[in-house]
Design a protein around this nucleic acid. Structure first.
Length: 621
RNA sequence: CGGGGCGUAGCUCAGUCUGGUAGAGCGCACGGUUCGGGACCGUGAGGCCGGAGGUUCAAGUCCUCUCGCCCCGACCA
């Protein structure tokens, strides 16, 4: 795709809607009516019959906590780099995640379908991406030597589906989604389910007759995403995101806040502005301090032996780093450009890339720098620089007096006046925002957080519909390309993110909606027939009452069981042991903390119901 | 793709520098004692030391080449 986007083809949303807590009480305990294929009726509710295998030690190849815990708790296991099994316990969580997504997608007006994982090359050639997409696209051949790829995303296929059936504006809009396995041959997969190569993704696509209608669906998706993450009990934030080569349209990412996140987010504590650092704007940056040296009519050379870094040069010259003009030579698809930024600031390569509208961008090699500027790396400057396009950040042009490289070994210029001594071809915002920079809306100091990108929504426009002739007739009988949106959400990644956000040193602390089982019934003293009888009886009651319960019927020692329960993190734990049962009591506790309470076994079903209802009351319904 | 690290029992790891009969803990099986926060004793099963070449009387250990996994970076963008 073009923008190898982050992970999802999609966009992001603006401010989240606030809490969308309506109060239709959830039917709680019953996930699916038994008559409709409730899976919770058989062996998988009894530990001894299902397949749960915990590990005592962290796996050697796991680095982040979600990867460690998911492996130790027996949720996933690794098959190859970036490729994992979802084991029964993990699959239950993923499946619950999927169900929440389905409900919100349906509410947003999208219909579910499933497209193939393996896609013929011809569609990709039609959209132009067969050539554009790099090695991240896993290309395969069948026995007849025909070319296919394992789908990293499905714009081509969905566009083909829609163009076959939709011909009129009267049939629009259309919104479709799937929950399906993707494959992206990432250069470096890492962190378990956080950046896998094969991963489960919900991808939705919408088709519209006009941009207003796209906007309506976009907002509905934005709302659906907010509700999905809220329902999972996740601390998240939607941020403005880079649209990559798509250009022009809106895009938002949904970030689950976590220190281990791969993305940096700039946000304003005052007005709520939030953006991926790749995209983040800033308000006016404070001007450089007064120029401490004499002002010249023309730049004058200063010998700066071996002084290449901003720090060295500014210290040597006795000026502030903000007085330097950092000059960096970049190589894009077709040209070299000299990019100027104030010495105390950093260039945002994504912004530069967008401005240049190129697909490749990298720093020029030392040899190229010397060839273009006439001087070695570390001594480049815009004065007298010819034969290359010069692009400057506005902060550079605000400098009254500046210092810069002289394009000569061991030499810098002082007393350089932007506009007088050089004139850039373009002046454009290229700054990387950093913590403390003023918010572009309200000028309050912004803060930086780390986030895991769990969703990305995009206004695609007509890129695919034009390339693939996905057209419709409008009211005037004129043919137009449909306007598209796409909306991605990482299913497994969201589950992993939930663990990053909810754990302690003993294990996972599942948010109720994602827990593989909401309740675990732990039987201790399984050598005592009366305990077994009581526990089995309670289990039957709980099961019959429709609870999502796992019965730990293993004849293990108590310590082993308690540690496993803490590791896996079932929200509600019920313990049936000889000690309590002597008084007719069962013990109930929450993984999230708080006191253990003793409950008469006869009241247990009702107590569990109440407990779950209380937990649910804290979540958006 | 560059840099670094690691591949030895199901898991976590010693052993490799300095070549000489394959180890520990956990897990697993059996017996016994235990039994409300990962018990203890005893017995036992389980390895082509990632793979292929080479050096050597002798290779887990030394050399070469490969494959895999992890981390950083580049790249993807």
């Amino acid at each position: 795709m073009e923008r190898p986007l982050s992970r999802f083809e999609g966009v992001n949303c603006q401010r989240p809607l606030t809490s969308s807590t309506s109060s239709s009480p959830a039917p709680a305990t019953i996930r699916r009516p038994p008559s409709q294929g409730n899976r919770d009726i058989g062996a998988n509710m009894r530990w001894s019959k299902t397949f749960i295998h915990t590990l005592r030690q962290d796996p050697a190849d796991a680095e982040v906590v979600s990867h460690k815990l998911m492996t130790r708790a027996g949720l996933i296991s690794k098959v190859a780099a970036g490729i994992y099994n979802s084991l029964p316990l993990g699959w239950r969580s993923i499946d619950k995640m999927s169900d929440i997504i389905r409900e919100e997608m349906e509410t947003a007006g999208a219909a579910e379908l499933v497209m193939p994982a393996v896609q013929p090359a011809e569609f990709w050639e039609e959209s132009g991406r067969w050539a554009q997409y790099g090695p991240e696209l896993l290309r395969i051949k069948d026995r007849h030597d025909r070319e296919f790829c394992f789908g990293p995303t499905h714009e081509e296929i969905i566009t083909d589906i829609v163009r076959r059936s939709i011909k009129s504006y009267k049939q629009l809009p259309v919104a479709l989604y799937q929950i399906q396995t993707k494959f992206r041959d990432e250069i470096r997969p890492r962190f378990g389910l956080m950046r896998g190569r094969e991963f489960l993704m919900k991808d939705a696509y919408s088709f519209h007759a006009d941009v207003e209608d796209l906007d309506t669906t976009y907002r509905a998706m934005e709302r659906a995403y907010c509700r999905i993450f809220e329902r999972c009990g996740l601390a998240y934030t939607p941020v403005e995101a880079d649209t990559g080569n798509i250009g022009g349209s809106e895009s938002h990412e949904f970030m689950v806040l976590a220190d281990t996140g791969e993305d940096a987010i700039m946000s304003c504590p005052s007005c709520g502005y939030g953006a991926n650092v790749e995209k983040a704007q800033t308000g006016a940056i404070a001007a450089a301090p007064a120029w401490p040296l004499a002002e010249n009519d023309a730049p004058s050379e200063v010998n700066t032996p071996e002084m290449r870094s901003i720090e060295e040069v500014s210290k040597f010259l006795g000026v502030d780093p903000a007085h330097l003009i950092k000059t960096m030579i970049f190589e894009s698809d077709e040209e070299f450009v000299a990019v100027l930024i104030r010495g105390d600031l950093e260039i945002n390569e994504v912004k530069l890339k967008n401005f240049l509208d190129c697909t490749h961008l990298q720093l020029a090699s030392e040899a190229k720098i010397e060839q273009i500027t006439g001087g070695p790396q570390g001594f480049s400057g815009p004065v007298g620089l010819e034969g290359i396009r010069i692009i400057a950040d506005p902060t550079v042009m605000d400098l009254k007096q500046a210092a810069t490289g002289a394009n000569t070994l061991d030499t810098h210029l002082v007393g350089v006046v932007p506009g007088r001594d050089f004139q850039p071809a373009d002046i454009v915002d290229l700054r990387t925002a950093k913590a403390g920079d003023p918010c572009p809306n309200c000028s309050e100091a912004m803060i930086e957080k780390r986030g895991i990108e769990v969703g990305h929504i995009f206004k695609l426009g007509t890129k695919y519909s034009t390339a693939m002739k996905c057209n419709f007739l409008d009211a005037e009988g004129k043919e137009n390309p449909m306007i598209m949106g796409c909306y991605g959400l990482g299913v497994g990644r969201t589950v992993a993110a939930a663990i990053e956000q909810n754990h302690d040193d003993k294990g996972i602390i599942w948010p109720l909606p994602l827990a593989p089982y909401e309740v675990v019934l732990v039987m201790l003293n399984s050598d005592k027939p009366d305990v077994v009888e009581a526990a089995e009886g309670l289990y039957t009651q709980l099961k019959d009452a429709g609870f999502d319960v796992l019965f730990d019927d293993r004849p293990e020692r108590p310590g082993v069981k308690f540690n496993d329960m803490d590791l896996i993190g079932f929200p509600v734990r019920i313990v049936a042991g000889a000690r309590g049962l002597a008084e007719g009591n069962i013990e109930l506790s929450l993984r999230s903390g708080g006191e253990k309470t003793l409950v008469p076994i006869t009241d247990m079903v009702e107590t569990v119901r109440k407990t779950l209802d209380e937990i649910r009351a804290q979540l958006p319904q």
